[in-house]
Each structure stands twice: as structure tokens, then as C-alpha cells.
Nucleic acid binder design. Structure first.
Length: 416
RNA sequence: GUGAGCGUAGCUCAAUGGUUAGAGCACUGGACUGUGGCUCCAGUGGUUGUGGGUUCGAGUCCCAUCGCUCACCCCA
């Protein structure tokens, strides 16, 4: 084999691609009544778009970005996530001047340089949404409501919603201090990774899955207990709205997201059936990000759904039916071939999927091909039929046969 | 970046260190001359990932390398 795909990227072939199309169309249909409009941003940005927003010390920025210099020497990065580009577009195009809130969704590829494994790829795809201009907790609950309705619509079940609040600039310093105090007496009990985290980003220790560290989580200070009154009120209100909307959820005080721009609400949708990669969708609020991008003080909230992970879940549940031709034109003889060739063009022009082949195979072979393609009808054009200006038809589902005028062929199929 | 497992036909897999590497499915044709599915018959298809080594002899054992997969880290 001369060429192979790059590690961690994959072709999406039929029939899988039909699952993708279904999911994408479900997203558009579910999001529309919530007022979300599609936005398409470039797959690459200046590197600073990501380093400044995601955070210099995050894994994504430190080791996972596809970054290169273009021919003019500017540092360019293939987007590792969707929020930063949308925020950049929101600010650059002055979308904050439009009536608030502005709500957008996107569907497209993201790139991260990681070792691939189940549910994790170097090029992966996300369906994401971003809502700007509303910090009311009802907006948080609304976003989660939309996510729930989407997941229900595509038929995934057994998903858990986990929520947390990680506070704002006002309350996080106090919590960080409490964590450092708590950890300083226990550095020896931490795993090597967590000792590093203790220095760089103490909150991340809560994310550790090592036994010693996770045992300690029980006693660790919880961000929820350190929220300022505004953030506490926001979180309590969110919980109330989720309950009134009938969205089941679990508060996970240990959930810390991997991007630095989040404030207040964070959430994650997880499943048991994806191996080590349990998150199918995740998101949160980012009330400072628009400002950091040079825009006005506009709050935002959004989430992203992992397409590969989602389609893995639903492919097991229902096979998607591949489309099949309406008719296969089986021919005998050169004159019939010429007539069928023209007839096929006419049918296709009328939106009818017609197949025929040019191999001159036996009628029997042509029937076999029609059967394999799962064609609804075979039309037979032979010398006899041609002489009468007619075609024989056979319905493959039940073998029903008959004859019609060739001029009626398109109408016949259109009425089926 | 770290660790483990696996690479044989298009696909799923066999083959104790011993002849010319097999089977099912798929594909092509035939039995059935102008009628599919079921059945039967035949055929096409291989540098056993690649390169070295051990051996009288390697798909099999050893080394290296590449690839894939899974896990760690982290995340969608």
C-alpha cells in the first residue's frame, strides 16, 4: 500500500456516514427552536487565540496542539477546541451589537496531538454551542435542557449529568489558598503527578484517579463551600431550574475542567460504555472570556459533544439503513442498452435513483447485482419490449411482475 | 511522553519448527441460453507488515523496525 491515513485520523465511510448525517441533522432540528444559529469558523487560528484562552499550563496547550509556522513566519494552530474561535469571531464581527443573547452552534473537526485510543483521535469532531450575553442561571439550565433533548433525540440513554460550580475571580483565590493549605501537609501522600499539580494548578489534584489521591478527595476542601454569595446563589438557582425542568443530575464537587476559561457552572455528560473515555459531552460558563478577547463584558456558556464518542454509542443501538436505488435497468442487446442509457438519464433528472451497468453481463447477473444493491424494482429492456415501446418490471420484494409503456416509466416509479 | 497486546487472502480467523500456507464470508462464473434471494460446483485472490538472525528447515523461535489496538496521562 502506497499511502495510509495519518495516525489518529480516520475515514468516515458509508454506512457510518449516515449515522453522522442523522446526528448532525438532529442537532440542527433540536437547536433551532432554542434560537441557535450555525456559525462556521476556520479550522486554524493564530496560536495566541488558544494559548491565551485555554491557558498556558493546560495539557492542551502544553503538548497537544498542532502548531506550525506559515510561510510568513506566523504561528498558526489547528483548532483543538471550538469555543475560543467562536469567541474570537463574536468579538471580531461585533456580534455583541446584535440583540442579546446571541446563540450559535458549530459542527466540525478539532485537532489534538494525542496518542489515539478508543474514543480518542487526533482529528475528532464536535457539535458545540455557545450562548452569549446572559448570565442568568436559567440560561445554564436551558443549555443543559437543550443538550438533554438532543441526546434523547438521537437515542442515547444511561447518561449521567454531572454539574459543579468552580466559582469566579472573586471566590477562587480563597479556595485555591485552602487547597494549598490542605495539600501542603500531605505532599508525601500525593502521586508524582499530583506533586507537580500542587505546584502548578492545585485544583487539578481533584481530577486524579490514583488511589491515594482520590481517597484524599473526601477530606479535601470543596470549591462549593468556598463560593462567594453571588456564585452560591447562581448555583442554587441552577439546581432549582434543573429540577423544575425535570433534568436529573448529580453534583460532582471534584469535577475540574481542563480549560482555564471556565467560571461558575461546569458540567459533563458521561457514559459507562466507552472504555476509559467516559465524557460524551462537556461544557461550562465562561463569563470573562469575551472581555479577555478584547470585547465588552459579555458572559457566555456552551458545551461540546464528541461526535465519535456519540456515534459509537448509537451505532450499537440501531443500525442505520443504507439508501437503495429505486430501479435497476436490466438490458439485453445493444439497442436496449442505448435506450436504457437514455432512460436512466431521464429518471435521474426526475430525482429517481436508477442504476444500470455497462458490462454486458447476463440477465441473471444483472438481477443479482440489482438484488445486492437492494433495488426496489428491476426494469427489463430486451428486444421484445423495445419493439413494443414497453418495459417489463419486477418488484424484488415480492416478485410481482408486469409491463408498462416506456413513456410511463418515470411516472410509474414516482408514484411508488 | 509511558506501558501492554496484536500484525496470515478484501473481511473474520486456522495452520505441533517439517511437502505447494488453508477455511468461512465476500467477489466472479456455472448448474438455470430472458428473471434475484436458497442450494450445489468451480474459479480469482498471499512478498504470512518490513528487515535481519538462529536452524538442515521459520507463518511459528530471537532481535530490530513500522503499523494497529488498548491502557496510563489528559480529554470530546
Amino acid at each position: 500500500m502506497k499511502f495510509r491515513a495519518i495516525k489518529g485520523v480516520q475515514d468516515i465511510l458509508p454506512p457510518d456516514v449516515y449515522v453522522w448525517q442523522e446526528v448532525e441533522s438532529a442537532a440542527r432540528q433540536v437547536f433551532a427552536p432554542f434560537g441557535y444559529k450555525e456559525i462556521r469558523t476556520p479550522v486554524m487560528e493564530f496560536t495566541e487565540v488558544f494559548t491565551r484562552s485555554i491557558g498556558e499550563t493546560t495539557d492542551i496547550v502544553e503538548k497537544e496542539m498542532y502548531t506550525f509556522n506559515d510561510r510568513a513566519g506566523r504561528s498558526i494552530t489547528l483548532r483543538p477546541e471550538g469555543t475560543a474561535p467562536v469567541v474570537r469571531a463574536y468579538v471580531e464581527n461585533h456580534l455583541y451589537r446584535l440583540p442579546s443573547p446571541q446563540k450559535y452552534y458549530y459542527i466540525g473537526p478539532m485537532f489534538r496531538y494525542e496518542r489515539p485510543q478508543r474514543g480518542r483521535f487526533r482529528q475528532f469532531h464536535q457539535i458545540g454551542v455557545e450562548a452569549f450575553g446572559e448570565d442568568d442561571p436559567r440560561m445554564d439550565a436551558e443549555v443543559l435542557d437543550m443538550l438533554r433533548r438532543f441526546l434523547e433525540r438521537v437515542g442515547v440513554e444511561d447518561l449521567g449529568f454531572e454539574i459543579n460550580s468552580i466559582g469566579c475571580d472573586a471566590c477562587r483565590p480563597a479556595y485555591r489558598e485552602a487547597m494549598v493549605d490542605f495539600l501542603s501537609g500531605r505532599v508525601d501522600t500525593l502521586c508524582t503527578d499530583c506533586r507537580r499539580r500542587y505546584e502548578v494548578n492545585p485544583l487539578r489534584v481533584l481530577d486524579c484517579k490514583a488511589k491515594g489521591c482520590s481517597a484524599m478527595k473526601e477530606e479535601a476542601p470543596r470549591i462549593i463551600d468556598y463560593l462567594c454569595s453571588d456564585c452560591r446563589g447562581h448555583f442554587e438557582a441552577l439546581r432549582g431550574h434543573l429540577e423544575s425542568l425535570g433534568i436529573p443530575y448529580r453534583v460532582n464537587p471534584g469535577m475540574v475542567r481542563g480549560l482555564d476559561y471556565y467560571t461558575r457552572t461546569t458540567f459533563e455528560v458521561t457514559t459507562e460504555s466507552l472504555g476509559a473515555q467516559s465524557a460524551v459531552a462537556a461544557g461550562g460558563r465562561y463569563d470573562r472570556l469575551v472581555e479577555e478577547f478584547g470585547g465588552p463584558a459579555v458572559p457566555g456558556i456552551g458545551f461540546a459533544i464528541g461526535m465519535e464518542r456519540l456515534t459509537m454509542l448509537i451505532r450499537d443501538r440501531h443500525g442505520v439503513e443504507e439508501p437503495a436505488p429505486s430501479v435497476y435497468l436490466a438490458v439485453i442487446g445493444a439497442d436496449a442498452e442505448a435506450a436504457a442509457y437514455k432512460l436512466a438519464s431521464e429518471m435521474r433528472g426526475s430525482g429517481i435513483w436508477a442504476e444500470l451497468d455497462y458490462s454486458g453481463a447476463s440477465l441473471r447477473s444483472q438481477f443479482k447485482r440489482a438484488d445486492r444493491l437492494r433495488a426496489a424494482y428491476v426494469f427489463i429492456l430486451g428486444e421484445d419490449e423495445l419493439a413494443r415501446g414497453a418495459v417489463r418490471y419486477k418488484r424484488l420484494s415480492d416478485g410481482l411482475q408486469g409491463e408498462i409503456d416506456m413513456d410511463d416509466a418515470v411516472r410509474f416509479l414516482s408514484s411508488q
